[in-house]
Amino acid sequence: MLLSYLPVLIIIGFVVFLASAVLFVNKLVSPKNPYKDKLSPWECGMEPIGNDADRGHFKVHFFIIAILFLVFDAETLYLFPWAVVLKELGIVAFVEMFIFIAILLVGLIYVWAKGALEWV
């Protein structure tokens, strides 16, 4: 049991080591010549405008998409175990799952009708 999950730890450790080694070599051989203009955020060569507090400003639609994602992502968690044993459980499990999906679909239809999926 442990042996089938140990590789995850090993591969993550090895890749982090590899990435750090490459970054270390990069640090050794790269030139270091920072000055203010080079370190400023890239805005097509103009002086950067606005201040840091403006960073949080973005269209609220992105946030709605994130919340919608949570709902359907939870649904996928139920779908996978259900899909594995569907043939054993038969028609009852099938109908039950589709009642569950239908309830979530009502949510999608509501969001759709409210226009939250329109981007203009």
């Binding site: 990435a19 990069n26 640090k27 030139p31 010549n33 920072p34 400023s40 955020p41």
Partner: peptide
């Protein structure tokens, strides 16, 4: 490999360096 590793002065330095990994 031989390019300068630039971190913008406005950036959140720790997160900026961490995120590619």
């Amino acid at each position: 490999m031989f390019k300068e590793d630039i971190t913008p002065y406005k950036a959140d330095k720790w997160l900026f360096r961490l995120s590619p990994i």
